[in-house]
Simulated assay, not measured.
Amino acid sequence: MREETEEMAVPGGPFLLRPWTAGDVGALLEAHADPLMRWQAPQPVDTAEEALQWIRRRAGQREEDAAYSFAVVERADPRAVLGDITVSAVDRRHSTGWVSYWTTKSARGRGAATAACRAVCRWAFDELGLFRLELGHRVDNIASCRVATAAGFAVEGRERQRLLYSGVRYDVERHARLATDEEA
């Protein structure tokens, strides 16, 4: 399993993107204990069994060619999970995908999300043959917008009241990056 994980790793500057493993259960639980993560996560992870199921779902999605999730880790210590970067909604007919990301509290502001986003885009264009990658963020999530633009995603518009969190609707700003765009 270790060799397979290393073989599927994607370099991202001082960071590395690697598939999630059962050894990441503790890191996933710690990440989901953060109030910001709990507020945004569609399904918070509260137990070791839920974390293991989350990791298994990601592996299953990869096998089905539906989504590709990577743990974002330090190159120097590939066990130190800093976040997640995912290409989901893979549509082979139109060569498109949806990018999403999150970082742990301790990783925020260190450039991990931007580096991971750049790396996963290059990987998705080169390895999956995708042409267009999209993402969206709440308009009040300035940090996520900075990551998207720094990773080369162009703003394409606003979706009014797209997301619902704790009974409040939020507008979403949409971004996209094409395989033909200049590297960020």
Rank of each mutant, 00 (worst) to 15 (best):
38 R>D: 13
144 S>K: 11
48 A>W: 09
60 G>C: 03
140 D>N: 15
147 V>A: 10
63 E>K: 12
130 L>K: 08
182 E>P: 09
40 Q>I: 08
135 L>T: 10
8 M>W: 08
21 T>C: 07
154 A>G: 11
40 Q>Y: 10
33 A>W: 10
174 R>G: 03
113 A>M: 06
3 E>Q: 09
80 A>G: 01
150 A>E: 11
37 M>H: 07
8 M>G: 02
154 A>K: 06
64 E>S: 09
138 R>V: 12
136 G>I: 03
100 S>Q: 13
181 D>I: 10
143 A>F: 11
50 E>D: 06
150 A>Q: 11
80 A>L: 13
107 A>Q: 11
103 T>A: 13
62 R>N: 04
2 R>A: 12
50 E>K: 10
105 K>I: 09
36 L>C: 04
1 M>G: 10
174 R>K: 07
19 P>M: 05
165 Y>L: 14
161 Q>L: 03
116 A>D: 02
86 T>Q: 08
152 G>H: 09
96 T>E: 11
125 F>V: 10
72 V>Q: 01
140 D>H: 13
78 P>N: 03
19 P>E: 04
151 A>C: 02
119 A>R: 03
68 Y>E: 13
20 W>M: 12
109 G>H: 15
153 F>A: 12
44 P>E: 00
99 V>C: 03
101 Y>G: 10
93 R>I: 11
183 E>Q: 06
10 V>G: 00
76 A>S: 14
5 T>I: 13
42 P>F: 06
176 A>M: 12
95 S>V: 13
148 A>D: 08
166 S>L: 12
128 L>T: 06
160 R>D: 05
42 P>L: 10
49 E>N: 06
154 A>F: 00
19 P>Q: 02
172 V>W: 06
182 E>D: 11
153 F>G: 01
130 L>Y: 07
15 F>R: 01
110 R>V: 05
41 A>V: 04
100 S>A: 13
38 R>N: 02
30 E>F: 08
134 E>R: 12
137 H>R: 12
69 S>Q: 15
33 A>M: 04
92 R>S: 15
142 I>A: 14
131 F>Y: 15
143 A>P: 11
33 A>R: 12
148 A>S: 12
8 M>R: 14
115 A>I: 08
175 H>W: 13
175 H>Q: 05
88 S>I: 00
158 R>W: 12
17 L>W: 00
27 A>Y: 04
26 G>S: 15
151 A>Q: 05
63 E>D: 14
69 S>Y: 08
46 D>H: 09
129 G>W: 07
35 P>Y: 09
182 E>V: 14
29 L>M: 04
59 A>P: 10
72 V>A: 05
95 S>Q: 15
154 A>L: 01
12 G>Q: 00
72 V>N: 00
181 D>K: 01
125 F>I: 11
66 A>F: 07
80 A>R: 14
79 R>Y: 02
134 E>K: 01
66 A>E: 15
